[in-house]
Write a protein that binds this DNA or RNA. Structure first.
Lengths: 132, 132
DNA sequence: CATTCAATTGAACAATTATTCAATCATACT
DNA sequence: AGTATGATTGAATAATTGTTCAATTGAATG
């Protein structure tokens, strides 16, 4: 049983009409939705979300977001309960994903949340109460 | 070497002052940042982000978002190149995370993106061009 | 009530990921 | 030059995740 057959049965069931044109029209609409949904930005978005989808990394971005300024690694490392090495790996992934930026200052390294990171966190904060 | 010692050296290096009060004041500020960053919503947020951090699941939410209405599983399944079983697992995770809702209609199942899902996708769309 | 079909569930396995340890790089200080 | 320190890197391993297959549920239909 092909997937278009199932769709055909669904449309017949749902709308009474079971003509071939109705099926192919809905198929065309769905193709359009698919095209709009699956742009080239999809991989980049999934990359960003994967970078945020971890407690250590999310907390780093949160801290930098709340701080509102660049922070030295040595300032936020004590707030995280993993090794320095793990923190460094996390910072590297977050930088690659475009969520934070790095600046050198002597032997210290300072990180700051990007506008993109702030936008996502603000959206999360603003939608947390929504029930639907 | 404790982490507060490193912070102490950093503050001495950065600001000249190396008094104990300056260190403990900065520590207090950082604790406050930590408290603001690590609320109880953190786990929920990471859960939501983990649910979105996968191509199949992200694409489902994108499709439902673009569609702007509820869709039958049989309508969007053909747009995804994984098994029906994988789709069902994905739908279950997305529902748990609060990104989609489910409604039964006869033997069909219809899903819709939640307001929270829409908010996050809009933030991603709106911030994609930002360079910093 | 037996059958068909849409969708879901659970078990299994492959693939990916998160963390740590050890070593290294880079900068400053003596 | 030699040493100390902040941070990063790579390799190894444990833990988690994503998908499929097989079996099941629940609703409609003959």
């Amino acid at each position: 049983m092909s997937s278009t057959e199932r769709l055909q049965r669904y449309l017949a069931d749902e709308r009474g009409g079971c003509g071939d044109e109705e099926v192919s029209q809905r198929l065309a609409e769905l193709e359009e939705i698919d095209a709009a949904a699956g742009g080239p930005a999809l991989d980049q978005d999934v990359g960003l979300l994967s970078a945020l989808a971890n407690e250590t990394r999310y907390k780093i971005v949160r801290i930098l977001h709340v701080a509102g300024e660049e922070l030295c690694v040595c300032e936020f490392a004590p707030l995280l309960d993993v090794s320095d090495s793990a923190i460094s790996h996390a910072l590297s992934q977050l930088t690659d994903a475009g969520l934070i930026t790095r600046r050198k200052e002597g032997k210290w390294r300072k990180y700051r949340a990007t506008a993109r990171a702030n936008a996502v966190l603000i959206a999360l904060d603003g939608s947390r109460e929504l029930r639907l």
